[in-house]
C-alpha cells in the first residue's frame, strides 16, 4: 500500500531529517519526494510505501503528528487513493 506524507509549515532546520528518520524507523520506504518553499511556507510531499511497515497506520500517523507538533509544522499521512480518487477519472 502506498501513502502520501505531507508537511506544511514555517521552514526550519531538520524537518526532512526528522520525518524521514521516523519513516525509516517504521520500515517505510520513500519512493518519491517533492519539496518547495512558497512565501516562507515549507511544503513537502512524499510518496511512501507502507506495505512493510511494522506498526499500524494509526500509530504511524500519531507518531508523525507528534513530530509535526515538535517542529511547529503539520505532518499528515494519508492513503494515496484519496488523492487519486478525487483528481483522476
Amino acid at each position: 500500500m502506498r501513502a502520501i506524507v505531507t508537511v506544511m509549515g514555517i521552514d526550519k532546520k531538520g524537518i526532512i531529517a526528522k520525518v524521514s528518520s521516523c519513516l525509516s524507523e517504521n520500515n517505510i520506504n520513500i519512493l518519491d519526494i517533492n519539496q518547495t518553499i512558497m512565501q516562507d511556507l515549507f511544503t513537502m510531499v512524499m510518496l511512501v510505501d507502507v506495505s512493510e511497515a511494522e506498526n499500524k497506520f494509526a500509530v504511524i500517523s500519531d507518531k508523525l503528528s507528534a513530530i509535526g507538533e515538535e517542529l511547529g509544522v503539520e505532518v499528515k499521512i494519508q492513503h494515496e487513493e484519496i488523492f487519486r480518487s478525487m483528481h483522476r477519472i
Binding site: 502520501i4 505531507t6 488523492f83 487519486r84 478525487m86 483528481h87
Partner: peptide, 12 residues
C-alpha cells in the same frame, strides 16, 4: 506522482 497542488487542494 499526483501533482502537489492537487494534494494540497484535497487537504485544504
Amino acid at each position: 506522482m499526483i501533482n502537489t497542488n492537487e494534494i494540497f487542494e484535497t487537504i485544504k
